[in-house]
């Protein structure tokens, strides 16, 4: 099993490329070569049996052994379990800030209409704003194919048995996308209202998409995700007349979990709310361009802090 994503061995790959090599090298080996900003091919990489086109996030059991003492003793660790992911996320965030990229992490249950909403969004922005997409799914490149049909560059990350994207996967996908400055990056997470909440990808905002064909009580049933999101798109509004869905109650539930969450009612079919959604994106892009200068120094300091904290604990 991959020790990074928890997927079965050989399950994770980007854009359907063969995952041909055995998981024989250790996690430490992988991590030492991983670039925080993911902007370069891994220099000085020890050959380990796969061509450099293959991206994968697994590693065999590290089985690190050190000559130890036979006597039982206590060791203080005091370290956050998500520290490594947060370090990669900070690297992604720095990359976005340096290049004025506005990145959104789109999360929802399967079937909420995320991909249709994305293709419609891309069509509306076409010719004015550069958009690129990272598509996360357990299997197939069907969604990336749909995005590419709009003319936007897209890269599929297959997580295998994994249930979420993590910051390292996104960083590796960024290497392949070579985004231009001032781009909009839409990261479509694995359809899952639970696990992706825990993993920061370096995005500016998480956007949760809930469709009116689901229950209005989803924000209470899956509070973690709604608590993490800054924006909720209540989607498939064109179907509302045929359904028994209480829109104000749904919004009230979402605000119980997250008093600050913004809400837009959308439909990729009727175009309802798409103008407001587009304006929100454009405001974010403008802000990202402005922050480009201001944020870079602050983020560099943050990364230095995280690295120091990890180094102190033996990361």
């Amino acid at each position: 099993m991959c020790t990074v994503c928890g997927c079965g061995e050989g399950e994770v790959n980007i854009e359907g490329e063969a995952h041909a090599h055995p998981h024989t090298y250790t996690l430490v080996h992988e991590r030492q070569q991983g670039s925080l900003v993911h902007a370069h091919p891994h220099p000085g990489e020890t050959p380990h049996g796969h061509d450099r086109e293959n991206l994968h996030f697994g590693a065999g059991a590290a089985g690190a052994m050190a000559p130890g003492m036979s006597q039982s003793r206590m060791v203080q660790v005091e370290q956050d379990v998500l520290a490594k992911n947060d370090e990669y996320a900070a690297g992604n965030r720095l990359h976005f800030a340096e290049h004025g990229i506005f990145a959104l992490n789109l999360v929802s249950s399967p079937g909420s209409g995320k991909t249709s909403l994305l293709t419609r969004t891309i069509e509306r922005l076409k010719g004015r704003i550069r958009v690129a997409v990272v598509e996360g799914d357990q299997q197939t490149s069907l969604d990336a194919d749909r995005i590419r049909a709009t003319g936007a560059p897209a890269i599929q990350v297959n997580t295998g048995k994994g249930c979420h994207l993590d910051a390292h996967m996104v960083g590796r996908a960024l290497e392949k996308l070579s985004l231009q400055d001032g781009s909009l990056l839409l990261i479509e997470n694995v359809g899952n209202l639970v696990c992706p909440a825990a993993f920061d990808l370096g995005e500016a905002h998480k956007v949760v998409i809930l469709s009116v064909t689901e229950g209005e009580d989803k924000p209470l049933k899956y509070p973690g995700m709604f608590a993490e999101a800054d924006m909720m798109l209540l989607n498939k509004m064109d179907l509302l007349p045929y359904l028994n869905f209480n829109v104000p109650l749904c919004i009230e539930y979402a605000r119980r979990v997250n008093p600050y969450i913004k809400v837009i009612l959308t439909s990729a079919v009727s175009d309802e709310g798409m103008g407001e959604w587009q304006e929100w994106i454009e405001a974010g892009l403008k802000q990202a361009a402005g922050q480009k200068v201001n944020e870079v120094d602050a983020l560099k300091r943050r990364i230095a802090e995280l690295e120091a904290a990890l180094a102190a604990k033996g990361g």
Binding site: Q71, R73, M74, V75, V77, E78, Q79
Partner: peptide, 9 residues
Amino acid sequence: MRVKELEVE
């Protein structure tokens, strides 16, 4: 979620 402490030998 944090790893607090380990008992090791």
